[in-house]
Structures are given as C-alpha cells and as structure tokens.
Nucleic acid binder design. Structure first.
Length: 206
DNA sequence: CACTAGATGCTCT
DNA sequence: GAGCATCTAGTGA
C-alpha cells in the first residue's frame, strides 16, 4: 500500500518503519528513519531552498533523494510532502531480508548486523548510487521499490537525530525498539551540548 | 569492549 | 575554502 506522504514529515517517518526497500535481489526492512522538513528545520538540506542537489525533495512524494557525502557515501531519502515542498525521510538503517549473498559481497568484511546499519552502509548494501537519483519508489516497474505493509511495529522509539550540527535536540529520529539493526546514537561534535532534560530515547506514541 | 583520527570529494558560499 | 544527515581501521584496555 502507499501511505500518505503529505502528512507532517515527523508523522510520516515512524509510519514507514518496517517498510521494505528493494533493488534487484536485495531487500531491506527499514528499522530506523529520520525526518527532515524544509520549512521549519535548519538541519534539512531543503531548508535553504531548492538546489540541483536537493531538487528531488521538492518534487512529488515517494521518490528517491540520494546525496553523496563525506567523499564516499551515498545516503537515501524518501521524498515527502506535496510538490514544491522540500521534505524527506532519511533511511538510516535496516535489516537485509533478501539477497544476503549479494549484500555481503558489496559490503566486504562487514558483519551481517552491519550490512545496512547506517545510511551509507544501507545504500551500499542495496547498490544505490547516482543512476538511481529521483527513482519513483512506488512505480512497480522501476529499479527501486518501496513496500509499506499495513500496521506498525509494536515498539517504536524516538530521540534526537544522529550527526546533525544544528537542531541536534529535535526528536525526529525513529527506530524499532527491539531491533539490533539500529545505529548507536552519536551527537555531532559541532552541535552545542544537549539541553537539560532532552531524552536520548523514549517510547513513541503516535 | 570504547574511543578516535583520517579518508575523501561533492556542494554551496 | 569550509562543511559535511559517515565509515573504517587503528589503538588501548
């Protein structure tokens, strides 16, 4: 089924936990997602307006926004919000559930737990790169597809996003509470110290 | 196990 | 030129 990706992005992100992204033989069940909103969120690539890089986020919802960072990693997002609004959900981690042999060969010596734990690793395990920019994830004939099962995982957790230097306390990271296929929290060294009373992880109740 | 330094190149200012 | 929604390999315990 195709969920409503035009709800507020911090409501869409938890809704997509448990979804399965597939590229060829490799399928990954998403265990950890982060919301980025172009209007209210200075941590979003879309906050400063449309550019060549982030244009996919301003396009129709349900497309793949891929960006290259740290000189060697691709990170994948699901574009959200109506056309003209730059929102996205970062796929931060997942569990490889099909195509393990292919995923392992792409990931070298990594353990199975680390095959897709982290945005760069997830993209590498799936074999995503420049040619998949902008793919329609809900086009069954396209190279990369997303399948969202009805219902939601039992235990959803929420806490601040990993690695952002601004808005580092905003609790817009969501993950499946009992999954081992989830990142460790790491605060950006450039971010100011956490404000008092900000929980690193708490149960999410939609 | 915990911690950290360095790699590496695209994007925007 | 600065910054980056990261990752790996290395060290030390």
């Amino acid at each position: 089924m195709k969920p409503d990706l035009c709800q507020p992005v911090e409501q869409v992100a938890p809704r997509l936990l448990g979804a399965v992204i597939r590229h060829g033989p490799v399928a990954v069940r998403l265990t950890e997602l982060e919301a980025y909103d172009g209007v209210t969120d200075p941590a979003s690539h879309a906050y400063r307006g449309r550019t060549a890089r982030n244009a996919v986020m301003f396009g129709p919802p349900g497309h793949l926004y891929l960006y290259f960072t740290y000189g060697m990693h691709w990170a994948g997002n699901i574009s959200c919000g109506p056309e003209g609004v730059g929102c996205g959900v970062l796929m931060r981690a997942g569990e490889v559930i099909e195509g393990l042999d292919v995923a392992r060969s792409r990931r070298g010596p990594a353990s199975d737990r680390n095959l897709a734990r982290g945005p760069g690793r997830l993209s590498q395990a799936l074999g995503l790169h420049a040619e998949h920019k902008g793919s329609d994830l809900f086009d069954q004939g396209g190279p990369v597809t997303l399948e969202v099962p009805p219902g939601q995982p039992e235990m959803i957790m929420v806490g601040p996003r990993v690695g952002v230097s601004v808005e580092a306390d905003r609790p817009w990271r969501f993950w499946i509470g009992d999954s081992p296929f989830v990142s460790d929290y790491k605060r950006s060294p450039r971010a100011p110290r956490a404000a008092a009373g900000v929980p690193m992880a708490q149960r999410w109740d939609g």
